[in-house]
Write a protein that binds this DNA or RNA. Structure first.
Lengths: 298, 298
DNA sequence: TAAAAATACTCCATAGGTATTTTAT
DNA sequence: ATAAAATACCTATGGAGTATTTTTA
């Protein structure tokens, strides 16, 4: 027995006429009659009562028709489900992200993604870059949005955004009135607020290096966990800070942002995934990130 | 796509090895590989991740496997259901019967039938012979157990039992002491108890005719609806009766039964059904009635 | 180098076509 | 006389077989 037999049976059962059924199936009548006979022989059951003039379903045929309809429907459904899985239209995905993207790029990405793939369940996990790399390998997340590059062979790493540092100053700070880019060296005697190296190694090192290259070692007045706290302390007049440009959107009151003259360091934001991950959901996600982040880069 | 593809897919998915799967399917490996590739091409989805050394299911394949298992199972089930329908092993049947068979032949038939076909739902309806013929045509019953023959072309009629009349006498009746068959003429002056012509036309006519043929018209002392009531009245000494032989089992106390000499009339019990009824349940029932009634006939 | 899947080809079984017959209305 | 299914016969697609190659552990 083949699906052919079931489909032919269904059509004949619906038409109750071999000629019409054959026309609907775009085939000749004799082979259709033959196939139905084959089906009946294999089942050992007469599915139709036929006279030369009339065809009707037997009781057995009626029952079989119902079941066959169900089966063919289930099959179509199964194929469609698999195809949608393959197109990344259904499924689930866990995305890790660092705190600093939570206010800018992440909401944009997620909004776009959920709009395009409403049937994929997205789980978001705020983690440090290091934790995300671990999570990728442990498969508790499939996508990482982080700042530190990795040399791991098994992980693909793709930078989605580079942004310069800016200087965050209390509103009443003397430098706040300047409009042109400021040389870093002028901050040599300022008290710095900075995130702890453990919480955000990449940012910490970048700040220290930037200053070092300009010939001074910054005075660290305070270390905090969160970037938002850094800006709060600046707003309170405790000190100044170097923060990624996009952080400007986070806190506008009582803080003034100034560009750095000849800024050589950038904060990078990257997306990472296990190279051999073939999940369509993951790849459509990556593709969408590329598409939705390009306008932001400008 | 054909069932072949689904069955092959299932086997390969279970074995995760084309060679072994091919062996299980009693076919060569290359055509199996080809069929799987065809399936994948038609679906537009890679169901297996293959290296030259290793085969594993893709996510899509895993989902598809579950669905395919369900579908193949449903199909097997559907075929089995239809076959059982065809063998008359499942379904329902409504059986009409006349009151006089309720104490002898009917329980035997039903007991045998339910033992052999426990999954057929049997509905029993006590009706007169005439009512049963009507019910057959209206399809409210499929089988009739009755006593009156019919000349209807569309109804099949098969006698399953013939039995002579016997004389039912009160225990203290003078004739009760005789052991040899009694001539009917000796009842010419006895008071008869008889069922009403409306309730049991066949029996009524038979009694009248028997007596008429012997040269007398019976004195009808009392008409009743039920055969059991007839015997009760005999037991009470109200009169005598002519009853079918099998009625002897119905009431033994205070009633004595005697054979009739040269009895020419028999009570017939027959089974009837609509000739063109092809329902296997009906035909297995008929067949079983023939088989289980033969020993009773002896 | 050994095992497993893929490739290349060959063959024949059978799905499907055409022509015709049978049968019931 | 006509319509519809069955029968008879033919064709050719493609499923399955055998032999061989490729690939990777």
């Amino acid at each position: 027995m083949e699906l052919r037999h079931l489909k032919y049976f269904k059509t004949v059962a619906e038409e109750l006429h071999f000629g019409r059924a054959a026309r609907r199936l775009k085939m000749a009548q004799p082979p259709l009659s033959l196939q139905i006979r084959q089906l009946e022989e294999e089942m050992g059951v007469l599915l139709f009562h036929r006279t030369k003039r009339n065809v009707e379903l037997s009781e057995e045929g009626k029952v079989f028709l119902e079941k066959v309809n169900q089966i063919l429907e289930n099959l179509d459904e199964a194929i469609e489900t698999v195809r949608r899985l393959n197109r990344g239209e259904v499924g689930e995905i866990a995305v890790g992200f660092i705190a600093t993207v939570a206010y800018g790029i992440l909401p944009t990405i997620i909004k776009h993604y959920r709009h395009k793939y409403p049937e994929v369940h997205v789980e978001l996990k705020q983690l440090t870059s290091a934790e995300q790399l671990k999570a990728l390998k442990e498969e508790t997340i499939q996508i990482a949005i982080l700042s530190e590059p990795t040399d791991s062979e098994e992980i693909n790493f793709e930078v989605i955004r580079k942004e310069p540092f800016v200087i965050a100053l209390p509103k009443e700070h003397p430098l706040a009135t300047e409009t042109s880019p400021i040389e870093l060296i002028r901050l040599a005697n300022e008290p710095f607020i900075i995130t702890g190296r453990k919480a955000n190694q990449n940012h910490y090192d970048m700040v220290i290096n930037s200053c070092y290259q300009e010939g001074f070692s910054p005075i660290i007045k305070q270390e905090t966990e969160e970037m938002f706290t850094v800006l709060s302390l600046v707003a309170a007049g405790i000190g100044i800070a170097l923060v990624p440009s996009s952080m400007q959107l986070l806190l506008q009151n009582d803080v003034v942002y100034r560009n750095i003259k000849d800024c050589k360091f950038n904060t990078v934001t990257a997306i990472a995934w296990i190279s051999e991950n073939r999940s369509p959901v993951v790849h459509t996600f990556i593709k969408l990130v590329r598409d939705s982040v390009i306008p932001i880069l400008s």
